[in-house]
Amino acid sequence: MTVTASDHISGLVLCHAGGQRLAIPAQEVDAFEPAGEAARYAGAAFESDARAPADAKVLRHRELTLSVDRVEVFATPVPRLAVPSALSSSWGGALVCFVECAGELWPVVSLERLARGDGEAAR
């Protein structure tokens, strides 16, 4: 992730998991590939009983893995939108910011936090 002086972000991996949207800074993703091993499912951050589909993709960052339904890379710089104070402590403070990509609002979160399961099943 590159944050410029104008507060834009360049390089995001847009993920869909359990019908929800998540954006992860590309800098935190070393690789993504078809699921071939057990990995924490990002959809569980929204619904604790959510399960990854058979054709899930696995994101990899160092020793950490996270599975999602599908991914796409978004390279266009976009302005970062601040996290509202009402959400500042939500999900263990893992929310980095929000961005608007392709007409939709995406929460930008840390893969490391998601993969470790911080704040999961809070609902």
Binding site: A45, W91, G92
Partner: peptide, 16 residues
């Protein structure tokens, strides 16, 4: 709305 992971149930989501 865009849902936020781990948000309490009274927080339905966010919008720009």
């Amino acid at each position: 709305l865009t849902r936020v992971p781990g948000a309490p149930s009274h927080l339905l989501g966010v919008f720009a």
